[in-house]
Write a protein that binds this DNA or RNA. Sequence first.
DNA 1: GAATGCGGGCTGT
DNA 2: ACAGCCCGCATTC
Length: 396
Amino acid sequence: MLKGADQPVMEQEDSASQHGEMTSWDINDIKLPQDVRQIDWFQEWPDSYVKHIYSSEDKNAQRHHSSWAMRNTNNHNSRILKKSCLGVVVCGNDCSTLDGRKIYLRPAICDKARQKQQRKCCPNCNGPLRLLSCRGHGGYPVTNFWRHEGQFIFFQSKGAHDHPRPETKLEAEARRSIQKAQTAFSASSLRLKRIQEIESLTGATPMPEALPLFLSKPDAFVPPADFGGRVSKSPEEPALSGCSGHPPAPRAGEHGGSRGALPWGRSPSLGSVPSTQRPCGGPAVPCTAPSPQRCAHLSTQHVLPLIKGGHGSFGPNTAPSGDGSCGEKSPLTYSSGCLSLPASPGPQGGPCPMARGAQPHRQLPGPSEGDGGQGGHQAGLSYCSNDVLFNLYPLR
DNA sequence: GAATGCGGGCTGT
DNA sequence: ACAGCCCGCATTC
Ligand SMILES: [Zn+2]
Ligand SMILES: [Zn+2]
């Protein structure tokens, strides 16, 4: 009601807090609205020119997370944090996995790490990797702005990503873990071999100490915990299978383990990386043909079937695992074990399905709620009451 | 080791 | 002045 008119921008139904009056602010305004009546659930893939108002309690918002690979950029304004998109890392051979998916790795945020990353090879075909930079904002990377004000965290995005979505942070982390585990595995394999040699020679058994537990054999294809847990859900993890109910109290709530910070879905899209770091097959020779440089030897490469956490990936914190998210639209491949979800989200305009409906407009419990909330948002509220509570009052 | 933040400094418009 | 960006430093994960 403040100035609902000065903003010619019609409310986009695709974003959470675009309710007329609420979008009348700009991240650069001296004063930001404090009479916010509705805050948004954390948006994992904010795209286009959208604005969101999160609760200052939201862990993801607090950490200025995004599933897009955003890096901090200096805008010489300590009050507003600015980040710009790094794009996505693709395979130079433009290969596809068995189930037809393309390789879209998450660019390392750290400059140094990114350089190192680009020297690595495609986890699927072992070919060279290429960084596809973002140019969704007037030819420049899409930018995101964050500003904490009162009990809210204001978010504003400028530009529409013109590239596919990269892996989520969790996926990328998981990938690293797996790679590490495999390295360790091979290392220990050698050790084991030696032990066996010794054994055969001396007839004695050295020390069963160093046998690794990650018996994920390269050729056996037994992805580490993460994956196993996926298909047949672990006890605590109530597979979103049927959108059963609400977030599991224990790990759910704010979950993310201990810090309850990263409720990002864990999607086992990991792929194992080729042996070690050898100069990618043939970078210079981008065999465009479907016969790229394959890893000469072992290369235990399997890019596990994707399960794209997408929205669901945010777990309790963002996506009301209960009714909210599931009911949504995301055919969340979650339950079905591994399936193929709509390959790539598609570049710009990427119809971020989830957003809309998944936005249980939360009503602020605290201040200014009486301002009009009660009006008729009840529906929305009841719609995901539990989740709301979870998000607002994470167990921690 | 990386992700994140911060802020000086340089550059082009 | 503004925006984009490189770079080193510090903190947190
Ligand atoms: Zn490839
Ligand atoms: Zn982008």
